[in-house]
C-alpha cells in the first residue's frame, strides 16, 4: 500500500520513503538541506530510541537522528 504525503515521523519503522517537500523554516531548513534532504531523496527509518523520539534515519548513506518535531516537517511519499 502506498501512502502519499505523510510526515517522515509517521513513516513506519523499517519502511522507505522519498522526500516530497521540506516544511521546516530558516536555519533548521538549511541544516536539513545540508544533509542532502532535497526533494526526491530516499529515506528509511532504521532506529528507534528507547522513548521512540528521536528516531534515526538513513539519509544518503549516513545515519541521522532527528526529533519527531523536525522529522514531522519533512513530507515523504511512502515507497
Amino acid at each position: 500500500m502506498k501512502r502519499q504525503g505523510m510526515p517522515l515521523s509517521q513513516l513506519p519503522f523499517g519502511m522507505r520513503g522519498v522526500v516530497r517537500e521540506l516544511r521546516a523554516e530558516t536555519s533548521s531548513r538549511r541544516r536539513l538541506l545540508d544533509l542532502g534532504l532535497v526533494a526526491g531523496t530516499p529515506v528509511e527509518t532504521v532506529l528507534r530510541s528507547p522513548a521512540g523520539n528521536p528516531m534515526a534515519y538513513e539519509i544518503r548513506g549516513a545515519l541521522i537522528a532527528l526529533r519527531n518535531a523536525e522529522a514531522g516537517q519533512i513530507i515523504v511519499d511512502m515507497m
Binding site: L32, L47, P54, L63, I64, A65, L66, A69
Partner: peptide, 11 residues
C-alpha cells in the same frame, strides 16, 4: 522551546 536536534551517528 527546544531547538532543532540533528545528530549524525557515525559508523
Amino acid at each position: 522551546l527546544p531547538s532543532s536536534f540533528i545528530l549524525e551517528m557515525p559508523p
